[in-house]
Design a protein around this nucleic acid. Structure first.
Lengths: 202, 202
DNA sequence: GTCTATAGCCAGATAGAC
DNA sequence: GTCTATCTGGCTATAGAC
């Protein structure tokens, strides 16, 4: 009994290590340029062993996406508990979190066009479930913020949702950092400011 | 004499056809998923013939980028001639143009991480030259708009420039269109509105 | 479940005839 | 310059021993 549980724990730890490597490599190079050989080398096991844990490269990417969605969901639940925070401020915090992850090199980037990858993701119950949960919760905040007038009620709420999501793959933060003229904290605040306030002066 | 010129014209037309195909395929599938076989089939010539015109897949992509930058530059010069237009409104027009191209399936999308592609682009004189010209002209408009107070003077001008450029690869317009709930004209206006006005109510 | 070795495939690039 | 046919390398995935 305890032996089985122990073995499962070992397994769990190893798979966590794999997914962490995949996450980092996906953030660094993207799905197409990441190779399974690289992942195996990074984890320190043979490629064939990798395939005992995950049946395909797409499944690896899906696992990484689930991992980051779990972290995001945890952040969202923590924000939900803070009743003093207005819905619009919770959305701001979500954007802050996304950009922070992005700049930390911890936000996996997937090509939206790859069809085999799309199929894997929509077929993944944990992924779709988490994506739904996150979308619905953010959707509630958006509607509430629009009713309070903190988010423009003239904008369709799906536009607002996608605009928030898109901060997770915004090319601007990495490019800004690459100039070497700004530090990460500044960049995060500017992205939040332009996302909600726009480029035009108030 | 005229024979040489005639032949060169034929060549020019054929290469235009190639670059047009590459442009469309890059917009549709992106660099990694676009294959040279596909390009050849789309143009209607053999792959080996393609390689007589362009030495590599990267060179094909670079040519497509040059083409779209030329079109963008033409738009920018046309806008520059309209002295009645305020700098901030010219920037709005540039964003409108980018999103329109994107929704029309005419904006090539390149992975920012691919290093061989980056090398090809920075090594391409026509590309770098056009990119510089475009960046400098937009930079002038940005500074002017900030002095007039139409663009927030507190934002660094490079942030503003990159934010405008990023509308050319914004994932939001395609996703919004995919919902089927909005038409292209609406989407363009919403992107312009959120880019300059933000999500928050004024 | 871990490894080494390899199968199978696909895409970028080229050879060589015309 | 165009073609057909082919080379070459790298990548996903698997076979099979331990």
């Amino acid at each position: 009994m305890t032996r089985v549980s122990f073995r499962q724990q070992i397994l769990r730890v190893r798979e966590d290590a794999i997914v962490a490597s995949v996450n980092r490599l996906l953030a660094e190079k993207g799905f197409d340029l990441m190779t399974v050989d690289e992942v195996a080398a990074d984890v320190g096991i043979a490629k064939a062993s990798l395939y005992k844990h995950f049946p395909s490269k797409e499944a690896l990417a899906a696992a990484a996406m689930v991992r980051v969605l779990e972290q995001g969901w945890a952040r969202i639940e923590a924000l939900g508990a803070q009743q003093a925070l207005a819905p619009a401020d919770k959305l701001r915090e979500v954007v802050r979190w996304c950009v922070g992850k992005l700049l930390a090199g911890e936000m996996p980037s997937l090509p939206s066009q790859n069809s085999s990858l799309r199929a894997e993701l929509v077929g993944s119950m944990p992924f779709m479930d988490l994506l739904m949960r996150v979308s619905e919760r953010l959707g509630e905040w958006i509607v509430a913020a629009q009713q309070q007038g903190a988010i423009d009620p003239g904008l369709p709420s799906d536009l607002v949702l996608y605009t928030v999501f898109a901060r997770a793959c915004d090319p601007v933060p990495p490019v800004l950092r690459a100039t070497g003229r700004h530090d990460d904290a500044e960049i995060v605040e500017w992205i939040v400011a332009t996302c909600f306030g726009g480029l035009a002066a108030r």
